[in-house]
Write a protein that binds this DNA or RNA. Structure first.
Length: 682
DNA sequence: GAGTTTGAAACT
DNA sequence: CAGTTTCAAACTC
């Protein structure tokens, strides 16, 4: 493998992501990737755009181990990096590199689970250049120690003590760079072992630990990312920790389709190149991975799965087993989203929100993550189920009011996450929200005899095919956005605020289309002539053309009452949104937003589910219903995607009259969205 | 939490 | 295509 020349490495300012991207390491990685890097040169927005995402195989291929291991390797590499960093601090770089390599090899000692990850190999044979690079990066991150990994549990103090010890060692090295000797290494190793022991204790709840958080916050800016990396480095000493995999992560990983498609994946592949025996690449990947992972995580909803895990381990957030669970859910969602074969429809959106808020949020949020981590809406969205990670972030993260608020919201949302509860359908029929949404059932589901799992992939695919054969649109979005022409078709009689309509229409008889029994209402769209409902009172638009929504009063009240009554907590959760909103928002809308396509690529790719979701979501969002928030602030609906499953973030039903023109801006977005992809198993 | 209601999905 | 049954979510108590 080509090793970037040492001279290429130059101190990279960590203050901004873009700068980081410009770093030699990043470029090098980019060059390594067989796939054209979506964005080494991209701006923050570019990353946010999730350009890395690309459609992947519908179902995960069993390369779980590899992914998992890659994560481990990453962490291990961090350890190496740490060592290398220290070494670099000494005047003798060459020796330092050797020691670093040696240390890396030692780190392998902690690898108790030989898997596809060749632990030893990865660290060994690494060129000093690589170490130098890594160390350069690390060195450039001053003050990172303050972000040292912390565990919320009782062991925290012990851990901190170890960290302090490590810090002292570093200081000592600086004082006498030439004094480093095997004894020192032994000492260090002992400290590592001690820490490892502590980890073992802590690891009582692996899932919790895995649930560590903070990576989200990390994304906010490069500095944060680097900071996290540092913390990771400190913890890298813990070899066993690496092996600890939260159930959630595992489940997700199992579901992870081949990421080869993603550029990000490429990066990781390069990282995990150790499997292939390419130590350099591997190391390089590692060095960059931490950083890139953060970036990618930001851009890639799925990415977080891997990156996240690595970071989680690092962060040691042990607090949120539940959060981890949610995260796993999200991951799963992401996987499916990538699956071209699964069409996500609005129908599924609600479901998704319920159980899979994370993906939703993550997607959109990811778009904004890097941009405005501090923003309420943005953050919230971002985190959602994912948020847990951030929750477990560094102390610094917790300290900020914004973070706290985020955490609070996240917790609230996470609590509401739920999944299907199928008992007889085996989750292989459209009754099952998970299945309908193209998602595998997961832990949160309460289903019985569930076949909607990766293990039964074939069965799931067959079933889906069967259903599609019967109804090709079965997995297509149920809610379509009405273009002007479509509106014309619907006629003037249905001037509902929402430009979106249920494709097939509802058939309500008793609910008056004022309850979630009604798919139209649930989707937050008005009924259309295609509806066969009786006594339609849909607050988002009546079938008969009477637009109750025209006034914020009655129609909204009904809507709000129905949608919000039980979802009061949702309202709380979305406090931020409420600040800007006067009207209740149909949960679906929020849901839909949650499922939005993560990346432009995904959006552009008709085969991507995410796109479909996104599309459907956008469709579901009435143009006219643009929340005041949008008008007032940049708090995008999309951003608020994380609404809790039950949360009814209803976009305010609008009065047609006022809404039509002013809010065309949204239309632009909608138009840009590709049509829903047909379900075509790879 | 259990039971009921509701309407979509599935079946005939 | 229409009628019926099945199903799980939504809802009520």
């Amino acid at each position: 493998m080509d090793t970037p020349h040492k001279t290429q490495i130059t101190p990279t300012p960590t203050s901004s992501l873009s700068k980081f991207e410009d770093s030699p390491v990043f470029k090098y990685i980019d060059s390594l990737s067989p796939i054209e890097q979506a964005k080494s040169s991209q701006t923050d927005n570019a990353f946010n755009s999730l350009a890395f995402l690309s459609p992947s195989s519908l179902f995960p291929s069993p390369q779980i181990n590899c992914h998992r291991e890659s994560r481990f390797s990453v962490k291990r590499h961090h350890f190496s990096a740490d060592l290398s960093t220290r070494v670099l601090q000494s005047s003798n770089e060459s020796n330092a590199s050797q020691e670093a390599s040696k240390a890396a090899g030692q780190s392998g000692l902690y690898d108790e689970h030989p898997g596809c990850l060749s632990n030893d190999g990865s660290s060994k044979g690494i060129s000093s250049d690589l170490f130098d690079k890594q160390s350069d990066l690390a060195v450039e991150l001053p003050g990172t120690s303050k972000y040292d990994c912390r565990s919320p549990d009782d062991n925290l103090e012990a851990c901190d003590a170890l960290l302090k010890k490590t810090s002292l060692e570093v200081v000592e090295q600086e004082r006498s760079p030439f004094q480093r000797s095997r004894d020192e290494w032994k000492e260090r190793q002992r400290s590592f072992e001690n820490e490892r022991d502590l980890r073992k204790i802590r690891r009582i709840k692996p899932s919790e630990e895995a649930a560590g958080c903070g990576w989200v916050a990390v994304v906010s800016d490069v500095a944060d990312m680097l900071t996290v990396n540092t913390s990771i480095i400190h913890e890298n000493s813990d070899g066993q920790d690496q092996r600890t995999v939260d159930s959630g992560t595992t489940s997700f990983i199992s579901n992870i389709p081949e990421f080869s498609l993603d550029n990000a994946n490429n990066l990781e592949n390069a990282e995990s190149g150790d499997h292939q025996g390419s130590c350099k690449q591997n190391e390089l990947g590692d060095s960059v991975t931490d950083q890139t992972s953060c970036i990618l995580s930001t851009c890639l909803p799925d990415k977080p799965v891997v990156t996240d895990s690595s970071l989680k381990k690092d962060d040691k957030g042990e607090k949120c087993s539940q959060l981890s669970r949610q995260r796993s859910i999200r991951r799963r969602c992401l996987v499916f989203e990538k699956s071209p074969g699964f069409g996500l429809h609005l129908n599924s959106l609600p479901n998704i929100l319920k159980g899979q808020n994370p993906p939703n949020k993550s997607i959109l949020s990811s778009m904004k993550m890097g941009e405005v981590p501090s923003d309420n809406g943005t953050v919230v969205i971002e985190s959602s189920c994912e948020a847990p990670a951030s929750v477990g972030g560094t102390d610094a993260d917790h300290n900020t009011p914004e973070k706290k608020r985020q955490k609070f919201e996240l917790v609230e949302e996470s609590a509401s996450c739920k999944r299907c509860n199928c008992k007889r359908s085996k989750c292989l029929k459209l009754y099952c929200d998970c299945f309908a949404a193209g998602l595998y059932c997961i832990e949160p589901c309460s289903c019985l005899d569930c076949f909607n799992k990766p293990i039964h992939e074939k069965m799931v695919l067959e079933t889906r095919k069967q259903i599609e054969s019967r109804n090709p649109q079965a997995f297509a979005p149920k809610v379509i956005r009405s273009t002007d022409s479509v509106l014309d078709t619907w006629g003037e009689n249905n001037k509902t605020p929402a430009s979106a309509r249920h494709k097939r229409g509802c058939n309500c008889r008793k609910s008056s289309c004022l309850k979630k029994y009604c798919e139209c209402f649930q989707a937050g769209v008005g009924c259309s002539p295609s509806c066969r409902c009786e006594g339609c009172k849909n607050s988002f638009g009546r079938k008969d053309g009477c637009d109750e929504s025209g006034s914020d009063g009655e129609g909204l009240e009904a809507c709000e009452k129905n949608a919000s009554d039980k979802n009061s907590h949702d309202i709380v959760t979305h406090k931020n949104a409420e600040e800007h909103r006067d009207l209740p928002v149909p949960s679906n809308i929020s849901r839909s937003s949650s499922q939005l396509c993560n990346t432009p690529e995904r959006c552009s790719s008709e085969s991507s589910l995410g796109q479909s979701k996104f599309n459907s979501n956008l469709q579901a969002i009435p143009e006219d219903e643009t929340p005041k928030v949008l008008k007032h602030k940049c708090l995008p609906l999309i951003l608020k995607t994380n609404s809790p499953p039950n949360s009814k973030r209803v976009s305010p039903p609008h009065h047609e009259c006022s809404s039509s023109t002013a809010q065309r801006s949204r239309k632009l977005i909608l138009k840009s969205i590709p049509s829903f992809p047909s379900f075509c198993p790879p």
